[in-house]
Write a protein that binds this DNA or RNA. Structure first.
Lengths: 154, 154
DNA sequence: AGTAGATAGTTCCCTTAGGGAACCCATTCG
DNA sequence: CGAATGGGTTCCCTAAGGGAACTATCTACT
């Protein structure tokens, strides 16, 4: 398909999508996040083609999102674990899941719930301002060119 | 490519990706968010194929993310505006951009900055717990099956 | 009147990425 | 020994993305 590469754009969104923007990547990340860490487990859970799964895992590992770790030498067995960089990517999943819960769950209710370690309650994320701690949503901000703006694009 | 449809999975992440998971969709959303709202403007800004852009806009409009609005009758001219549902999707972009700023910006610095309306400062989002208002990151939660969990998947 | 330009797409062909099944190889279990 | 498990790789087929050309409508200029 000779797909356009996003990595060279002067845009943090495009550059992030270059890493996890391909179909399946976020779902693979989700599986590893919740503890589905082995090749065959992920393949069975998602129903993804083995070929595509192998490609994605290799790509994510080469971008330091995942680490391929041997947990048994004989027979050689591997699992994939998140790096710190990869764990921070999962923050995005939390926000994606919240939108899906709000807009696509229907009367059945959300498929999963999130329990917050700090307070022990079933909760959801709020987006707040790092400075004033008030809600900070997409509709609450102005977007301005920053120092890395080669071209005036986001 | 006979791509697998995510919409039927019992997973809010998969269902959200079914709406905006295809390549380009998040970047189209971003453009409209920051005020690039007309077909040719978006096409020029992103360098996307006109065919794919037309397909994406039609899909996003049919999913009530965007609205196609006539802003001039003679000649007939249209722009695309975000619905409330679409504006909430942009919250995801805010978090995606934060990750990109942290991990891909390099020494040039972030390409764009975000000014928070409430406090007027250049800031970034924090993810906090809706209950206890402490930080709530992907590493701070347990994932449990919820009422809509047909299959025990996230 | 004729022509150029802007807007918003649609149509065409070509290449390549994803799907799916089969295959491979090493080790361990019964 | 044969079967099962884990972790992939290889093959072919189809459909999705890229890119350029084409269409259509109205406005503005010469």
């Amino acid at each position: 398909m000779q797909r356009t590469q996003f990595g060279q754009m002067a845009c943090s969104i495009a550059r992030t999508l270059d890493v996890i923007g391909e179909p399946w990547s976020p779902l693979i990340l989700r599986d590893i996040w919740v503890g589905i860490t082995r090749f065959d487990q992920i393949q069975a859970d998602l129903g993804i083609s083995r070929k595509v799964l192998a490609e994605r895992l290799k790509w994510l590992a080469s971008n330091a999102i995942l680490e391929r770790r041997e947990y048994s030498a004989t027979p050689p067995r591997h699992e994939y674990v998140l790096t710190a960089k990869g764990m921070e990517l999962c923050d995005i999943l939390l926000v994606i899941a919240r939108w899906g819960d709000h807009w696509t769950a229907g009367q059945a209710g959300p498929p999963v719930l999130y329990r917050h370690h700090a307070c022990g309650r079933i909760s959801e994320v709020d987006l707040t301002c790092a400075h004033c701690h008030q809600p900070m949503r997409a509709s609450d901000v102005d977007v301005l060119p920053g120092p890395g703006a080669a071209i005036p694009a986001i």
